[in-house]
């Protein structure tokens, strides 16, 4: 029986190997995007799948997030007599933080899991091998379009999230709780700077890379059978979500 030090060493090596393989996967996918971008139709399909088909869930999540922010913000700000600042509080929370993070988490759950399952099933049914035998590069069809699609779709979804969320906050703050509508938008305009907007965009773009990279990778190296695909899908959603949150912290500390 191996001693604990050996076990720790083996675990560390296996983690390092996995990390190396993941980085190689991303580098090769990015190289393929530049060297053989493929047909625009493949990217358009992914834009539709990751972007357009996530619209409803983003709309729903954003509405309620904005409404909750409106409620919570109102009750906190009234304690200081500053309920006029509600628009500013809702907008800054959404644009800087909640919009990019929550839209990324929603895309992970809706599209990321489907990406892993699709690629995983293609792997276990030898469809990826079939592409190789036709002398076609699987990355060009399965990975690169998804990364490009996610990098374009996630920031757009984040922008939709921000706008819908702001109107959700407006609905609760102005229409239900009686905050002055002029104050809501005026304070927002005064406090939101271009820096806040572009930090949200940068976050979203990087989240798009993380989601598509992790989900494609997990599908590409899915284990055997239905159980292998199921494990890969779970692992992809968990890892993407955790990485999004970790990366968000580091980006925030840089961009603040």
């Amino acid at each position: 029986m191996p001693n604990p030090v050996e076990q720790l060493g083996a675990l560390s090596l296996s983690l390092l190997r996995e990390m190396g393989r993941m980085v190689n996967f991303l580098v090769y996918a990015l190289y393929k995007i530049i060297s053989s971008p493929g047909k625009p139709i493949h990217i358009l399909k992914q834009l539709y799948f990751i972007g357009a088909k996530s619209f409803f869930v983003i709309f729903l999540t954003a509405s309620f997030t904005g409404m909750v922010l409106g409620l919570q913000g109102y009750y906190t700000l009234t304690k200081f007599g500053s309920e006029g600042m509600l628009g500013s509080a809702v907008a800054l929370s959404l644009i800087r933080e909640l919009g990019p993070v929550l839209s990324a988490l929603m895309v992970t759950g809706r599209a990321g899991s489907a990406i892993t399952a699709e690629i995983g099933i293609m792997k276990i049914t030898e469809q990826i091998d079939a592409l190789r035998t036709m002398a076609l590069e699987p990355f060009k069809y399965l990975v690169s379009p998804k990364i490009v699609g996610a990098v374009i779709a996630v920031p757009l979804l984040c922008a939709i999230f921000d706008v819908v969320g702001i109107y959700g906050g407006y609905l609760v703050g102005v229409k239900l709780l009686g905050v002055n509508p002029g104050a809501y938008f005026h304070e927002m305009e005064k406090s939101v700077e271009w820096k806040d907007v572009y930090s949200g965009i940068i976050k979203s773009i990087s989240f798009g890379v993380i989601i598509s990279w992790v989900c494609c990778y997990k599908g590409y190296y899915a284990g055997h059978g239905a159980e292998g695909v199921s494990r890969a899908t779970t692992s992809a959603v968990v890892m993407s979500s955790v990485l999004v949150l970790i990366w968000d912290y580091f980006l925030t500390s840089i961009l603040l």
């Binding site: 099933i121 293609m122 049914t125 030898e126 469809q127 091998d129 079939a130 035998t133």
Partner: peptide
């Protein structure tokens, strides 16, 4: 050209 055991058609 290759014919796979389960045909490996793109489903």
């Amino acid at each position: 050209g290759m014919l796979f055991q389960n045909a490996a058609l793109f489903d």
